[in-house]
Design a protein around this nucleic acid. Sequence first.
DNA 1: CACAATTATATTGCGCACAATTTTATTTTC
DNA 2: GAAAATAAAATTGTGCGCAATATAATTGTG
Lengths: 144, 144
Amino acid sequence: MEEKLQLKSQVCFPIYSLSREIINRYRPFLDELDITYPQYLVLMVLWENEVQTVNQIGEKLNLDSGTLTPLLKRLEAKELIHRCRRRSDERVVEITLTEKASSLKSKAVLVPEKVVNDIGLTSEDLEDLKRIVTKILNKTKNLP
Amino acid sequence: MEEKLQLKSQVCFPIYSLSREIINRYRPFLDELDITYPQYLVLMVLWENEVQTVNQIGEKLNLDSGTLTPLLKRLEAKELIHRCRRRSDERVVEITLTEKASSLKSKAVLVPEKVVNDIGLTSEDLEDLKRIVTKILNKTKNLP
DNA sequence: CACAATTATATTGCGCACAATTTTATTTTC
DNA sequence: GAAAATAAAATTGTGCGCAATATAATTGTG
């Protein structure tokens, strides 16, 4: 019993730790852009496709409206996005990037590389990590 | 530029997603014990060693008093721990497990296995994941 | 066309995380 | 031994994450 309950034997604790650790490493670089990590994720989704609904963003990030609505309002307050209800269906809120956000992209693109260098990750580490994590994430996608 | 900013090319997003996904998979089992995942982590630290200071717990989980103080108060309210200032140094708060918490251990020990089965992880997946994640976490430990 | 069912977002409430500051206790230094 | 420095928790404030519920618009059905 003892052995199974040790932190080092756990599945989730190392992943939970690493997730927080990497986000903390992102922080100083994202501070310069005056955005948080989850805000950065939302902008990345929008940089790939400049107009998207709240739902579409949520599906890509696995976040619901309880998380996204206030986050998007903060991005709007920073003048990085516009929120506008769709004319043809007023239930839908369409999110569009502002000029300010578009011009942030060139700085944002440099951040991940800085973090990787900061931590000293090799491309082999990255490939190994991404391979196994993605494999497991795919397993969970077909579950209830 | 486009390529580097795609979610699938990111280091952190898959880890951040997987961390949340696994914690969500823990939830139904931990709900039965009436505790959250971070509370479960704190209890695990204490099951390994029944008396510890707030600082000692924080070092093992990489959490500060801003997170731990309210969390510990909630565990105290659930009567799973006692919080008591050390006689010889009143700055220190010592956390001890209650009988109730000790008897929870036999149920708690079964949870990780249930989650692993739930997701359908093989022992090979687990080994691969733990090896690479721990390797990267160790790299970060020697950084500023 | 009314009315029930569905859909999209918003709101509320709770529990983390984490930075910054404060409080209280102890140790160090003069 | 008093003042300064250090140390341990607590507090405050902000921003997620997520469950549960509410609101409002649209669609489906008789």
